[in-house]
Design a protein around this nucleic acid. Structure first.
Length: 268
DNA sequence: AGACAGGGGAGTG
DNA sequence: CACTCCCCTGTC
């Protein structure tokens, strides 16, 4: 087992904030599956203890390498956010693997967290690699080339998202997906929205959670309701207006603002 | 039992 | 833009 210093960090908020799906808790540990990795992690004070992954990976995954206080200093200027931040201080946006993240958020539409998790675990069991870790069986998330017979996915109860995922497996260029990191926000988003089954919300999620675009502001029904009630006195807005508002008001940290709002709203 | 909504998006008009 | 429908699951 190894440990790493993690100040201004809250593991529980970070893992459970609803944007990451493949984990579970067992005897004070979080067991985490992300792409081809399986590891466990727990927090004690200002340290994270972990096993199954390298120190570099853990630091990168949980974004321990970034200046969190700077983000908070900016967002604290907003009254509603300040309240959410006191409650969920230490929440960070995990750096997910882009392909798994894309599949996850295509599956997420018109669904809910328990079902999404079930879908993803099912896909992993069918196409991923079996790993025994700490005496427990896990399945890694498959990469694109591992989907030998996509029809097997019918078993995963994806509903109408099944068709989207099958199309994705045919159309997607993973190299191109990874290279979106190097493009600017609007070009990267344009590419993602061009994929069948990917709209503005899913695109923003992928950009924010896996491609390093902190300015992305995913607008789902929750964020829409929250923005309408907190900033517009309950007036109804279109998704587009909500997105414009978030981008303008929170700028390069819109993604973090989004997560604090979402997390505080979801648990109220 | 049966209706209904649940972290969207495609396809129309 | 606004509207309907898409599949499936859990909930009331």
């Amino acid at each position: 087992m190894q440990k790493i210093k993690a100040t201004n960090f809250n593991l529980k908020h970070t893992i459970e904030c609803g944007n990451f799906f493949r984990y579970f808790e067992k005897s004070n540990w979080y067991y985490v599956c992300s792409a081809d990795k399986v590891f466990k992690v727990q927090q004690r004070g200002d340290y994270i203890y972990f096993d199954g992954a390298s120190k570099e990976f853990i630091s990168h995954f949980f974004r321990l390498d970034e200046d969190y206080s700077k983000v908070i200093a900016v967002l604290n200027k907003d009254k509603a956010l300040k309240k959410a931040i006191t409650k969920y201080f230490g929440l960070r946006i995990i750096r997910q693997e882009p392909f798994e993240c894309l599949v996850s958020y295509i599956c997420s539409q018109n669904s809910n967290i328990p079902r999404i998790t079930k879908n993803l675990n099912h896909i992993a069991e069918l196409f991923g690699r079996k790993v025994v870790f700490d005496g427990t069986v896990f399945y890694t998330f498959p990469s694109l080339k591992d989907f030998d017979d996509a029809k097997k996915m019918k078993m995963c109860n994806l509903g109408y998202r099944y068709g989207y995922i099958c199309r994705l497996l045919k159309d997607l260029d993973v190299g191109l997906l990874y290279s979106l990191k190097l493009k600017n926000y609007s070009d990267a988003k344009k590419y993602l929205v061009g994929l069948h089954g990917v709209g503005p919300k899913v695109a923003d999620c992928v950009l924010l959670f896996s491609l390093g675009f902190d300015e992305a502001f995913p607008v789902d029904v929750w964020i829409k309701r929250l923005v309408e009630s907190l900033y517009f006195g309950g007036k109804k807005l279109t998704e587009k207006k909500v997105h414009e508002f978030g981008s303008k008001r929170f700028g390069r940290y819109a993604g973090y603002a989004n997560q604090f709002l979402f997390h505080s709203g979801r648990l109220e």
